[in-house]
């Protein structure tokens, strides 16, 4: 991994179209500004982690889950 040191207000350019700026530094938090083309997807890493966890949990379902669900849905 490439590691760079930046000061407040300084930025990093990735390719020709992506720019990441250090907008604010407050204690342990850093605010970043990201300038990128519209088609670039930007998400916090946790979003991907949450989806990955959700996929794993979903794949645990078996036929019993469905019959339990079916029973519950049939209750008046």
């Amino acid at each position: 991994m490439l590691v760079l040191t930046r000061k407040l207000g300084e930025s990093i350019a990735i390719d020709d179209h992506i720019k990441i700026v250090v907008v604010q530094i407050k204690g342990k938090q850093v605010r970043l500004g990201i300038k990128a083309p519209k088609e670039t997807k930007i998400h916090r890493e946790e979003v991907y982690q949450a989806i990955q966890d959700q996929n794993t949990e979903a794949s645990q379902a078996d036929m019993k889950s469905i019959s339990d669900l079916s029973d519950e849905l049939n209750k008046k």
């Binding site: 949450a50 989806i51 959700q54 949990e57 979903a58 379902a61 519950e72």
Partner: peptide
Amino acid sequence: TILTIPEVVTEMSANLKA
């Protein structure tokens, strides 16, 4: 959408984000 069906089935959820 992918569904997660936990043991308490009424807590089931759908992943609308992905």
